[in-house]
Design a protein around this nucleic acid. Structure first.
Length: 765
DNA sequence: GAAAGTGGTCTTTTT
DNA sequence: GACCACTTTC
């Protein structure tokens, strides 16, 4: 941590091996050590490798002490992997100790935690601050709406939060917003909500994700010598996924590298998929303007995917107008065809994916680990998950509801959070609403205590504690039942607080679930309840990981980890044979031998919101196209693209059209199969009909349509898969005209009699 | 104050 | 079809 610590590293390894196996451009990226460097790296071009080798090279060859290197990654997982890699390259052991590496947000916390005095004095944030996640923020916005007497129907909290976050990501304070950015009545509402939100956030001694980026800058403004200290210290600053940085991150990085100007950024403008959270593609496009002396290196050779996949990706992304002209190439073999498949609906799509996965796994060429199914929206995962469960295909889901976001987990976490930060009103509210101990404490009691606490200049939870210790003088207008219930809660909080810092977190957990009566709320007889209780116990095992940590430090460290881990971070490298289900966004940076992209449809990819905004904002569609590009380029060997003719939306089936993006797929790499005629559930028109009937929009351009395979016939004993009923065995068959009537015994639904032509059955081996 | 019921609204992606 | 805010009923 000490910047004056300029000790020479003990590494005396020959550094020559660090360039082994790198191509000339990669080598140049590793060895261009002084001045700003921009590496524009296409997918699969070895950028992770370059980053790791560069850091290792700086340490081993240039003798830069690890603690004078700062590397920013997009996820914690990437940081972990990078560290491992660097350690392996530099002789293992603890060689990478001292390297400052992590996400922007983790880095932000680090700066704040390292300077508690200045942060408290100048920014008004006490050392025990909490990090509010998305759900907490939303709670706070709702509370702000209530305080401002605004209708939640009219001013959707989600939208308000997104507008607030946009302001914060541009460093626009509530005051500045009020003075310069209020143009419409809606802006005026935003102004009010933003101001209140920010006030409540600070009152709760909490910071949100945007603050984690903005507050370090405020800190440096308040204490310029602090910035100088870090500038002096960091000889080298490296940033991964630079195309997805926002304005604040750009300023932070520029500031930190301001002294030595050794700023090394790696990114791919074609993979910029976070504009919606204020990522600013200009950061990478204008790097050379910002740093005129910059060296620019292009990595265009793809080592990941087959030639057919690379060419397909290249053709797709070429259609974007706002783009640096460049190409992606590979020396890899041609590989297999890309498969494009139309299905009648989402069930059938899931069933197709299941059938293909079975086929692949049974061929022994791949295992479940090798396969990922990607989609645009989390909602799509449900049908696929269901089909996997019914077919006993092991899977894991990345994204969606984080473990820490589950209700029952959050309930217990709320207590831990409140113990750490008594000002955390969001958690207090949660406890009052959800734990048995909160019963009997209604809005009136809470308001009375809140009022009293304000008068006494205490955090609200202290009012509860005070009730249990000093009783009568507290909140005199609080009557009978409410007073009794509040006193009970206060007593438990006081008792728990007495043990914080001296007892291990698991001990605290045990006391919480028993004394708050939480454990008793889970009914023994309900399977669902038992599952939820199992989740609570899983939280206990998670806490147990911190039992080795000094009890005084365990709670803050744990809570910080909870706030900053993403779902991808917890993804194990070894998925133990399970297929990965993942959103396209989360899949960035990953690779799989086999990739399915489901729902390549108008309305999903591109998403409907982007289509609606198309005329006003064509860039939105381009971002969707980049997302598709990211998906395609995750695949090493096999790529399957599927879309459905109709899809369930708001509880009803809606016709769905093939994505416009499919029109740019090169036909020579494609195997296309249209939907089988399915009479049962097919309100959507087939692709050919759609191409014939709709007008000249791009989306209607026909993709090659291969005739549907001949209808299969079934015999008794056949194993089949039905999109609704799952797996079953044919027990009887009877010929009806040119059709078959089948009796099928389904594992989960018993015997059904179905017509072969209508039932969407797929044979199973 | 709590539980059960009703009607209206939504679904983009995440550190 | 799921979830939430709001109501009715006890």
């Amino acid at each position: 941590m000490d910047p004056t610590n300029l000790r020479k590293p003990m590494l005396q390894l020959p550094a020559s091996h660090l360039l082994d196996g790198l191509n000339p451009e990669q080598s140049r990226a590793v060895t261009t050590i002084s001045g700003p460097v921009l590496v524009v790296a296409g997918p699969g071009s070895g950028k992770t490798r370059v980053l790791a080798h560069r850091v290792a090279y700086l340490m081993a060859h240039e003798q830069v002490p690890p603690d004078r290197i700062l590397a920013v990654t997009f996820t914690n997982k990437a940081a972990r992997e990078m560290r491992d890699r660097i350690e392996r390259l530099t002789g293992g052991g603890e060689s990478a100790r001292g390297l400052v590496m992590g996400t922007f947000h983790a880095l932000g916390v680090r700066f704040l935690r390292q300077n508690p005095g200045v942060v408290a004095d100048r920014l008004g944030i006490l050392p025990n601050f909490l990090i509010y996640d998305d759900a907490d923020q939303l709670d706070l916005v709702k509370r702000s709406l209530i305080e401002e007497s605004l209708d939640q129907k009219q001013y959707a909290p989600r939208r308000m939060l997104s507008r607030i976050s946009n302001q914060k990501a541009q460093l626009i304070s509530p005051d500045e917003f009020a003075q310069e950015h209020v143009k419409t009545f809606d802006d005026e509402i935003v102004r009010r909500v933003y101001a209140t939100y920010q006030r409540l956030l600070r009152k709760a001694n909490a910071v949100d994700f945007d603050d984690l980026l903005a507050l370090p800058l405020a800190l440096f403004d308040a204490a310029p010598r602090l910035l100088e200290h870090y500038q002096e210290r960091f000889l080298h600053v490296l940033v991964d996924e630079y195309q997805d940085t926002n304005r604040v991150q750009y300023i932070l990085v520029s500031a930190l590298s301001g002294k030595h100007r050794n700023l090394f950024v790696v990114g791919d403008p074609d993979q910029s998929i976070y504009a919606w959270r204020q990522a600013d593609i200009r950061n990478i496009l204008e790097f050379q303007q910002d740093f005129p002396e910059a060296t620019v290196i292009n990595l265009e050779t793809n080592y990941r995917s087959t030639a057919r996949i690379v060419d397909t990706a290249d053709r797709v992304i070429r259609e974007n107008r706002q783009r640096l002209e460049r190409s992606l190439r590979t020396d890899n073999p041609e590989g297999e065809f890309v498969v494009l498949r139309e299905l009648s609906d989402g069930h059938h799509e899931a069933q197709f994916i299941v059938a293909e996965i079975r086929r692949l796994v049974q061929s022994d060429k791949v295992t479940g680990d090798d396969i990922a199914v990607m989609y645009r929206t989390i909602a799509q995962s449900r049908l696929i998950e269901e089909a996997f469960r019914q077919s006993n295909i092991p899977y894991r889901i990345v994204g969606g509801v984080r473990f820490y976001d589950r209700k029952e987990v959050k309930d217990v976490l709320a207590v831990l959070r409140l113990l750490y930060n008594p000002a955390d009103e969001v958690s207090l509210q949660r406890i009052v609403d959800n734990l048995p101990l909160g019963r009997g404490i209604g809005p009136k009691a809470l308001e009375a205590l809140r009022y009293w606490a304000t008068l006494e200049r205490l955090p609200v939870s202290e009012a509860f504690v005070a009730l249990s210790t000093t009783g009568a003088q507290v909140a005199p207008e609080l009557g009978g039942a409410g007073r009794a219930a509040s006193t009970r809660l206060g007593a438990v909080l006081a008792s728990l607080r007495g043990r914080v810092g001296s007892v291990a977190l698991t001990g605290l957990f045990d006391q919480i679930v028993s004394e708050t009566g939480y454990k008793a709320t889970f009914a023994q007889d309900s399977e669902e309840e038992m599952q939820r209780w199992a989740n609570v116990l899983e939280l206990r095992s998670d806490l147990a990981k911190y039992d080795e940590v000094d009890p005084a430090q365990a709670l803050p460290q744990y809570l910080e980890q909870v706030a900053l881990v993403s779902d991808v971070d917890t993804m194990e490298d070894d998925s133990r044979g399970r297929v990965t289900l993942i959103t396209l966004h989360s899949a960035k940076g990953l690779e799989f031998p086999v990739v399915f992209i489901a729902g390549v449809e108008e309305g999903l990819l591109p998403i409907s919101r982007a289509i609606e905004a198309e005329w006003q904002n064509p860039a939105a569609i381009e971002e969707e196209r980049r997302l598709f590009y990211v998906g395609i380029t995750r695949a090493k060997h096999l790529l399957f693209l599927t879309y459905a003719g109709s899809r369930m939306l708001y509880g009803g089936y809606m016709p769905s059209a093939a994505s416009r993006f499919l029109a740019s797929l090169p036909q020579q790499h494609l195997r296309t199969v249209a939907a089988r005629p399915t009479l049962a559930r097919s309100p959507g028109r087939s692709l050919t009909e759609r191409a014939r009937n709709t007008s000249s929009s791009e989306s209607s351009r026909p993709v090659v349509v291969v005739p549907a395979p001949p209808r299969k016939t079934f015999a008794a004993g056949d194993h089949v898969f039905h999109p609704r009923f799952g797996e079953g065995t044919v027990t009887e068959t009877a010929d009806r005209h040119d059709d078959q009537e089948l009796a099928i015994d389904f594992a989960r639904h018993g015997v059904k009699r179905l017509l072969a032509s209508l039932a969407n059955l797929d044979p199973l081996e």
